[in-house]
Write a protein that binds this DNA or RNA. Structure first.
Lengths: 212, 212, 212, 212
DNA sequence: TATGAATGAGCTTTCATTCAT
DNA sequence: AATGAATGAAAGCTCATTCAT
């Protein structure tokens, strides 16, 4: 089958086109205010075609969020491995995170909404919520491990690693919010030094003040 | 008009009942998944009655969010005044904030969603978004002022006060998210010391290391 | 509550109007070719109103078929009681049946289709099918009992009563089909004597030829 | 064109395979609940291929019903010719009919639905309906002729032959319905003696009681 | 000839809103 | 002032049919 590969590739491309078009519309109007017809128009396909690739509006949305979130989280977790010591890992992580966010302005918006808006059992879309949440948890746990390691090595104060993680990510999230609020006036990643300084100057134990 | 007072009071009470009922339903199901009929049933009024107090679902929602957000933000801003010095102000602020959030679990959820989910001009509810945003900005600016003052007094490092504010509120938001994620396992306000330690130990300038 | 009765009565009337309009359309175009908009137009209500009375197209259809079928079957079973002897009962039953069918040309069509088209487990509408079937079974069993009684009394041959019932109703159904096919050329009930003669001349035992 | 024969034969085979697959699906799910994709899948062809053999879903369905109905009716009409006298003809006809129905459980269901459910002018499929009806009429007329002949020969009572036909086929249909209802518990053809007894004992004129 | 991805008209259903009572 | 039955625009989704390969 010499050209069955081409068809397959075309399928994959169409799927991607739909996801991209959907992302644009969802980012602009939100899940509920976006109609399947709008997405179809944006993707330059018929509505029916969308439904050949995704079984429902929800599934399309969930796929969009999850695929990209997975990608981003995995990339971040991996990036942290590059540095040898805990402090370096955290620094890399923050740097990479801000860079990726810079490069994915639109999408980050959707992702943030899904991660931060707390779920309730009655709400629909709960499968999406729990999947995205577990992806995000994986990410948080990876950071947690870095803190634990740093504490063991005596380079971080002995605060609960989970809480340190929560605080660090909180700061990042705060800067992201501000960045949106300001309409992306500055590059998000220009803040990485500041974030690290605010966060680290306290956590890094100065030589001579041992961890006890 | 002797009993116009009673009538008026009854009106106000009804309005409040509707808002409370609406809050409960919105918290449980979100804006889009909540129907006016559900709210009416919860409020034990007819749908028509709801429309005599609020001109649309949007307006009801916006009123709900804005009135309570205003209240909360004003209370917080005021609370900060109680302490004489900048550090005390910040401490009080965080303490009060966590206590208020503890006491308003449900509502905070809605408020957070509206504050944190970035807006786009095309989305409906954008008027609500911009109003809530400006309320929140007022709050942030109040904190900013505390930092500016602290810097001038030489008790805080010379970081941009806006950024410090953003970082501090980010940490708080991070803890709130975690608190939701964990299903309110611990009291949110139990974290206030830790938050302050994480944040302050770096920002507060140790005696002897002047700000230069 | 003096006039709550009026509202209730109005509700019931509207429900009936919808059922009648739906019957007309369903009879003309069949279940699948009928749209809810057509029914609404025929009933002179908005589509939404239809859905306040019936939760779905299926439920509307099922209600329509079942309510009227129940009525008709009950009337028939009762009518048979009027005659004292088995032969008289059967005669009354056939007479009444044909008269009722004459008077319900349109509806009978729907009913017949639902009764005669055998169901399969995979098919939707199976609840309707099983309910209508049990109503019809009640009817057949009532006839069966008449035959059993007649056999015991020695006025009918000793054929299995169920089979006699099936044969008798088969003949009736055959005449009904022919009546439709011919576009209602003659009154259906004009055939009752002939049906009874064809059926009874054999089943009724001539005096002197005892049942053994 | 040396192998045009093979090609042609292959075409015919494909057509048959499609018809058989379609029959299975239609029998299970009915006309409206069956999709062309399901048929294609069942036939192991692409949808497009189905459309090369049949111009529409309707035409496929109509062809299916008509071809087989024609076959069955023709076989029945022919079978009656085997017997020399009218009574023998009717007996053969009933016997054959029940045997054929036994052997075509699934299909009979579709056929019955199309024959018995009366048509309305507005319904789609009305062309199919009128064609199947005329086929069935041909069948009924053949039976009618047997009765006419029997009356002329003095072996049947002088009832209108058309009505006798209708009654007889009604009985058969009644037994078929019961057979379906019971889930094919007994063989349908086991009932042929009983049917004939119920029907004939009255219509056949006992020797000595001339038709006058 | 066989294919199945693409299509979009048209369906059922929902729900914010109105208005006669 | 309070009601809730009535409304119909608009949504998500299906599926017979087409056509480029």
């Amino acid at each position: 089958m010499p050209n069955s590969g081409r068809k397959e590739r075309e399928q994959t491309r169409h799927r991607q086109e739909i996801l991209t078009a959907a992302e644009n519309v969802f980012v602009r109007k939100g899940f509920f205010n976006t109609t399947m017809n709008e997405i179809a128009r944006a993707a330059e396909f018929g509505v029916g075609t969308i439904y050949q690739y995704f079984s429902s509006k929800e599934e399309l949305y969930a796929t969009l969020i999850l695929e990209r979130t997975d990608e981003i989280m995995d990339a971040l977790i991996l990036s942290a491995r590059k540095a040898p010591d805990p402090i370096g890992k955290i620094k890399t992580l923050i740097n990479e995170q801000l860079k990726i966010f810079d490069a994915n302005k639109g999408f980050i918006r959707l992702m943030a909404a899904e991660i931060d808006t707390p779920t309730s059992p009655e709400e629909t879309r709960s499968r999406l919520r729990s999947e995205i949440d577990s992806t995000y948890q994986r990410f948080l746990e990876a950071i947690e491990k870095i803190f634990s390691e740093g504490i063991k090595l005596g380079v971080f104060r002995n605060f609960p690693p989970r809480k340190m993680t929560v605080a660090l990510q909180g700061i990042v999230t705060g800067f992201v919010s501000e960045w949106y609020r300001s309409g992306f006036q500055e590059k998000l990643s220009d803040n990485s030094d500041l974030i690290l300084k605010i966060f680290f100057d306290s956590l890094e134990i100065p030589p001579g003040r041992e961890n006890k």
